[in-house]
Design a protein around this nucleic acid. Structure first.
Length: 562
RNA sequence: CGGGAUGUGGCUCAGCCCGGUAGAGCACUCGGUUCGGGACCGAGGGGUCGUGAGUUCAAAUCUCACCAUCCCGACCA
């Protein structure tokens, strides 16, 4: 393609809206153009990259037996009411005003409705169905360019199985396919255990890129392969033990509100103080007990109590406990209040807790003797530098961008929509499903985050919009143009070429644009080397320059490319 | 939704505090000179100063409301 006829609007300066590198470079390289907050037009140069990504995904999905669908982006709202997801998506889902339709944020419902209509027997399973299409989410705060936008391209696939062993197999096929997709795309990625959140289901993993621009907090072990989203991460922080049970006492603790104040005042270790935090879910109050300054991990709490919740207000505290924050505790609370304690507190003795009387605490509380704990669970948020639960080495806390997420859904959607099949015994069962998503634009953006320098993008062969970038340095010299034209023609037979034949800009502009656009190999045709019947090949990533005689240039290029 | 910032030509920004003819660089058009790392000279075109009210003889500038965008937080299949 001749640059002179192309629409590749490169810019020297960055719009002040773009903050992260990939966003800035995508705009400067003329890949995308913002239309509104979280809404982007994809321009030809960018589309070529996205198409490369989509083709890699398509090849790997086909390789595990996936079959591609094209599904509607507008869906009847009734379908989503049946699975309860109109409510669970809430404001994230776009609703069409003049029809009972929504813009699909994902496609479990549509896929399941197709399965319901056509799958009858276990003999028709398993199936892997996928699509690569636009999804719509009314993000409250779009950010970081195409990384979090309101319309984006996602490869979503869905596995349909008749057994849980089958689901495991489909899930693992996807995990392996995803590793190949990211590896082929040139991303440095890792896999973490993740929460399945509102998607439901029994297990899930995320594929992450480490990045300061990331929105997820991740716990990683430096010496083994433990890795988990902070939402579910656990560590080897041990249970507490304060010896055999002593006599409970009530003590005066004036104006003591925090665990740190309490431990200072009483000259005890913070971990001997048990913190009580209260949440409300619907009409139910939950008193959550944690060791010392351990933080409640609300994702874990949500999976324990199973519904949405909110912190208790100060007024409600007084109503429920006759005491204010800082003096709340588990001893003698109403039976209507559920008490859930973190695993570290299991059957602990000699704790210090609030007395449910302002300015008083209790010493030597024995959880077995003095109060009724309804349930113990892992509720604490892991902190950095804690010991790994697998190898006991230090854990690291970092942030990442999610580029893929795989879920074992189970029968949540098939049950809701009655997508059943008959098993070997003629018994009707809901189809066992998995769902597996990859963000197309995110792969491209994350690649740029990981592969750029001060001059621009550095594409690899897999994602580069073109194989070679030919630059003709001086278009006034007929001989130079002739050589470049011939090279363009002969290379075009086998490779995709961006040919910078522009007469309107100086050589310097062409060089800067070439580095910005980041095509891996530049072929520079200028009179300086032509005097020696040579052209120059520049490797974008290493800045290595190779002078090649014209008569061997095709062979040399072939070698360099492979 | 809470906190903060910004809105002036296509882009980056100055001007606003202290009201009085709307500016610079880049980009664009024309002419000329250059021609291997974002060239130079000359001449041009292009702006309802986010929108709407208000104060004032006079508003880009002061006041109020609204809108938009970005950042932090909340949220995030």
């Amino acid at each position: 393609m001749r640059f002179s006829n192309s629409f590749i609007p490169t810019t020297k300066e960055v719009p002040n809206d773009a903050v992260i590198t990939s966003h800035q470079l995508m705009i400067r390289a003329g890949m995308v153009k913002a239309l509104g907050s979280g809404i982007y037009s994809v321009l030809p140069f960018g589309l070529k990259v996205f198409q490369k990504v989509m083709n890699i995904i398509r090849e790997e999905m086909n390789a595990i037996g996936g079959q591609e669908f094209y599904l509607p982006g507008i869906n009847p709202v009734e379908l989503w009411q049946e699975t309860g997801r109109v409510e669970s998506f809430g404001d994230i889902m776009f609703h069409i005003k003049n029809r009972q339709l929504i813009l699909a944020p994902t496609h479990e419902e549509v896929i399941t409705s197709i399965a319901k209509a056509h799958i009858r027997s276990y003999k028709e399973l398993p199936q892997i169905w996928y699509q690569i299409q636009s999804k719509f989410r009314n993000e409250p705060r779009p950010k970081s360019g195409v990384i979090r936008s309101r319309q984006f391209t996602m490869k979503d696939s869905y596995s349909l199985d008749s057994t849980s062993e089958g689901l495991d197999k489909s899930y693992n096929l996807h995990a392996e396919a995803y590793k190949k997709i990211y590896t082929r795309s040139g991303l440095k990625f890792f896999i973490i255990g993740a929460s399945s959140g509102a998607m439901g289901g029994s297990g899930s993993q995320e594929f992450m890129i480490e990045s300061d621009a990331g929105e997820d907090s991740i716990i990683l072990c430096e010496s083994c392969d433990y890795a988990a989203n902070l939402e579910i991460a656990t560590s080897n922080k041990s249970k507490i033990n304060f010896g055999s049970s002593k006599k409970k006492e009530k003590i005066f603790t004036p104006n003591i509100k925090t665990i740190d104040q309490l431990s200072n005042y009483l000259k005890v270790h913070v971990e001997q103080c048990a913190k009580s935090v209260v949440y409300i879910s619907g009409k139910q109050a939950y008193l959550i007990m944690m060791v010392g300054n351990d933080q409640v991990n609300e994702s874990k709490l949500k999976s324990v109590i199973g519904t949405e919740f909110r912190p208790c207000t100060d007024e409600e505290l007084v109503e429920l406990f006759s005491a204010e924050a800082g003096s709340i505790g588990p001893v003698g609370v109403s039976k209507n209040i559920k008490v859930i304690a973190d695993n570290r507190l299991k059957d602990s003795t000699n704790l210090i807790t609030g007395a449910n009387i302002n300015d008083y605490h209790l010493l030597n509380v024995d959880l077995l003797r003095d109060c009724k704990i309804d349930h113990y669970s892992d509720l604490r948020q892991v902190e950095k530098d804690e010991p790994c639960k697998l190898c006991n080495k230090q854990l690291r806390l970092t942030t990442g961008i999610e580029v893929g997420h795989i879920f074992k859904l189970g029968t949540k959607y098939s049950s809701a929509l009655k997508a059943n099949f008959l098993d070997e015994n003629g018994k009707e069962n809901p189809i066992i499903m998995g769902s597996y998503g990859i963000g197309v634009e995110r792969i491209a953006a994350c690649y740029i985050e990981q592969n750029h320098d001060e001059f621009g993008i550095i594409w690899n062969k897999a994602l580069s919009p073109f194989d070679f970038h030919i630059i003709v340095v001086n278009v006034k010299l007929a001989k130079v143009v002739e050589v470049a034209d011939n090279l363009y023609k002969s290379l075009s037979e086998k490779y995709s070429i961006l040919y910078d034949d522009r007469s309107s800009v100086s050589a310097g502009v062409k060089f800067k644009d070439a580095d910005l656009l980041g095509i891996p190999f530049q072929i520079i045709v200028g009179d300086r080397n032509l005097e020696n019947n040579s052209v120059e090949i520049k490797i974008r990533r290493t800045n290595e320059r190779i002078i090649v005689p014209i008569d061997s240039v095709l062979e040399k290029i072939k070698n360099i490319y492979e």
